[in-house]
Design a protein around this nucleic acid. Structure first.
Length: 494
RNA sequence: GGUCGGGUGGCCGAGUGGCUAGGCAGAGCUCUGCAAAAGCUCGUACAGCGGUUCGAAUCCGCUCUCGACCUCCA
């Protein structure tokens, strides 16, 4: 039994995680709508829940991680849609929705791979589950909580709220919502403005359409998650994750639909990550301030001073608690880059160290204590920021032993072994980080050792001109030589 | 307007009723042929005003301020 505590958005409390089926954990995360390129904001939930997934695996759970691809709805591509909607165009010239879906799904996968996220166990698409969605809607109609108007089906929120705690997840009060003055399109069909669509009748020019008992149309935007999570994880499952902006109305609607269709609430633990902001504003299409992943990695964006490695972005995200907003800035990303490099180099150094007699008992036990707190950090609602801070505290100890400021035999073999395992487990397995150094080919290594040997000779002869020349010329194209205490040399590539 | 959540040192960011967060930047020192790296030391922060308390940045109230959601959104 683990001590993993999760902040449950539904109860607004940290709760001990206990899976429904011992040893197994089911997690559903709202995936991307593949009608456009993924951006930095999207990176946050998928990296956050990747860490949840990884931590559950680390704790020994067998995890079924389901993350959908939303590929149904209203699709258009910027600059293309105006003409593409004209239906008499030749097939090849016309917007083909599945073409867009394919393109952006591929791009999304590319980004996720670079972020070193573990693939979900199942990645269901909305279009692949139309039948499941229709039958769920039928159930809801049969229960008397949905009604059909002109080929569209709406969920009766007012009726639902009479019996069930509608608004509990997102902290809404139905009466307040009913009073909202905002006027929206298509409201006339609904009995109340809080009702939401389960199925939408497709206008003639709408390209994506399916047959249904209510005529041709397409599913409403909440039903896919309910239908697919139930299919692959069951009527009630452990964790449902997503961005805070989905809490209302998306997740609130999911709860309502599923509760009627299955007779009980669908989710045990709701988890919501906070937003990435840029100049204090949420990054999002409507704010016109998005930095796409392709731009982030290439540096091709007016707001970017340089390209950022995917691992730097991942590290930067994990340095903040997932429920806090995270403000983007070049400065912050650059700080993350330097920090990650330092941390990773210490990790590499650590692998070379050999333990001894624990000549410094105080230090030895302090290191063991610090290692022990790593689990506590993760167990406390996934405090990756504190995990990273703790690892950083261990860095001067590792470097100190290497640099001679701390006695070589200071740590015991046991402690050093624990330290190695902790770095491996946390850095690689749980936080999912990787080295950002280019993988150095064997041949480069050998060529470098030739240069290093020549330079060592030069230094022995006190031929500083030659030795500096080698170092400076290498530095000019980004290979940095470091002279170490013991006369050894190492190199890093910038 | 309604609901909710923030305001932490130059920047980014944890956390907490009394005990060092951490990173980046900066200053000084040690090491070094020089440099880089590394190590050590340093700034002593918690929006403002009241209140509770032996003690609050951490609890309560008010004020200012920023944001999120209420519409597609990660």
């Amino acid at each position: 039994m683990s001590n993993f505590k999760i902040f449950n958005s539904y109860t607004r409390e940290k709760e001990l995680f206990k899976s429904i089926v011992p040893g197994y954990a089911g997690m559903y995360v709202c995936g991307p709508t593949v009608s456009g390129e993924s951006h930095l904001g999207h990176a946050r939930p998928y990296i956050t829940f990747d860490v949840v997934n990884r931590y559950l695996l680390h704790l020994g759970y067998r995890v079924r991680y389901v993350r959908n691809i939303t590929d149904a709805g209203h699709f258009e591509e910027e600059g293309r849609e105006a003409e593409d909607k004209v239906s008499d165009k030749a097939k090849l010239e016309r917007l083909e929705p599945m073409e867009l879906v394919q393109k952006y799904t591929n791009l999304f996968h590319w980004g996720m791979r670079l972020f070193n996220t573990i693939e979900p166990s199942i990645e269901p698409t909305a279009t692949g589950h139309i039948i499941e969605q229709i039958s769920m809607i039928e159930k809801i109609i049969n229960e008397g909580y949905a009604y059909e108007v002109n080929g569209s089906v709406y969920f009766d929120v007012k009726k639902y709220a009479q019996t069930y705690p509608y608004g509990k997840l997102s902290g809404r009060v139905l009466d307040d919502l009913l009073e909202t003055t905002r006027e929206l399109e298509g409201q006339d069909e609904k009995r109340n403005k809080t009702d939401f669509a389960l199925w939408k009748s497709a206008p003639p020019q709408h390209i994506m359409r399916w047959k249904s008992p209510w005529g041709e149309g397409f599913p409403g935007w909440h039903i896919e998650c309910s239908a697919m999570s139930a299919k692959y994880l069951g009527d009630v499952f452990d964790i449902h994750g997503g961005g805070m902006d989905l809490q209302f109305p998306h997740h609130e609607s999911e709860i309502a639909q599923s509760t009627i269709a299955h007779g009980h609430a669908p989710v045990r633990y709701w988890m919501h990550n906070n937003m990435i902001t840029i100049n204090g504003k949420k990054m999002g299409k409507s704010y016109n301030n998005v930095i796409k992943l392709t731009e982030l990695f290439s540096g091709q964006h007016p707001l970017l001073e340089q390209p950022y490695h995917p691992m730097v972005v991942r590290f930067y995200i994990l340095q903040t608690h997932y429920r806090s907003t995270l403000d983007f800035s070049n400065e912050a990303l650059q700080a993350a880059e330097k920090g990650l490099k330092r941390l990773w180099e210490a990790y590499e150094t650590l692998k070379q160290l050999t333990g001894s007699t624990a000549s410094d008992k105080t230090l030895d036990s302090r290191v063991q204590q610090m290692i022990a707190t790593l689990d506590d950090c993760m167990n406390d609602d996934l405090n990756t920021a504190q995990v990273i801070a703790t690892l950083f505290e261990l860095v001067p100890i590792v470097n100190g032993i290497k640099g001679g400021q701390i006695a070589k035999e200071a740590l015991s073999i046991t402690t050093l072994d624990l330290l190695n395992k902790a770095f491996k487990a946390y850095l690689e397995d749980i936080l999912g980080l990787q080295s950002i150094q280019e993988t150095q080919g064997d041949k480069l290594d050998r060529a470098m050792s030739v240069l290093i040997d020549i330079r060592k000779d030069a230094r022995k002869r006190k031929d500083w001109t030659a030795s500096d020349e080698i170092r400076n010329k290498l530095a000019a194209f980004g290979i940095i030589l470091k002279d170490e205490k013991d006369g050894n040399m190492s190199y890093t590539i910038e």
